[in-house]
Design a protein around this nucleic acid. Sequence first.
DNA 1: AATCGAAGCAACCGCTCGTCA
DNA 2: GTGACGAGCGGTTGCTTCGAT
Length: 243
Amino acid sequence: MGRSPCCDKATVKRGPWSSEEDAQLRCYIERHGGAAGGWMALPRKAGLRRCGKSCRLRWLNYLRPGVRHGGFSPDEDRVICALYAAVGSRWSLIAAHLHGRTDNGVKNYWNTRLKKRFQLLFAGMPPPPAVPVPLPWTTGLLPCGTGGGVDDTRIIGAGGGGNGTDDDMVTGRTNDVVVVSQRPAETSSSSCGPAATTELDEMFRSMGTTGGDHSDMCQSSTEIETASWYHCQYLGSMPYMYW
DNA sequence: AATCGAAGCAACCGCTCGTCA
DNA sequence: GTGACGAGCGGTTGCTTCGAT
């Protein structure tokens, strides 16, 4: 007993969207403030011969205001790679931290460009785990003070140009992970502490959130030791080896 | 100028999850 | 508690574009 199809493939149109269809969809959504009544009912109400799923995808990935295409910045590259190392192929989660990017766009960008660079970079290392390693600080962030020649932290994306543009939205905050990269020892002078906290404060401020008390985000060395060093290798070394 | 392969991207497919009756 | 249904997500496919030969 198979699953019933979401729509009748014989009657719905498939393939590339025409400008007329785009206009119809945009008009309907703008007029009703979204997919009123659900995506499944939208095509009929909007007079489109499309599957509801197709309409949703078209809107989210292409028509939705603010969606950006192409031209990924180095900061965005960093965030994508770091978050991929942290959470795996959870594209919607990754895209949520790149202003104006869609999960589909990030996924395509990864598959066509970044993956190759990622693989090249870690050619001599064992492959990343198929399932993300459960980290003890998943409610916080990657701890600072990890060994192996790195002894400082840096929030990925919080630095960079620092000109306050949209590209600076590429912070490391996620629903369950805040990503911090490791800085090589020779380039830093302090360990986890005020500097990192200041960056966090700045990050949360720029995002319009208080961030609350994140003093607990710097884990103890004991907790760090229990974490996967392997994971830290991926998260920690990449931004510096690569960019 | 024609052909071919690689790259990039939009769209589709099928599964899982969440909600609700 | 359970089944139906819609929404969301990630993997995959296929079309288009572009560069090399």
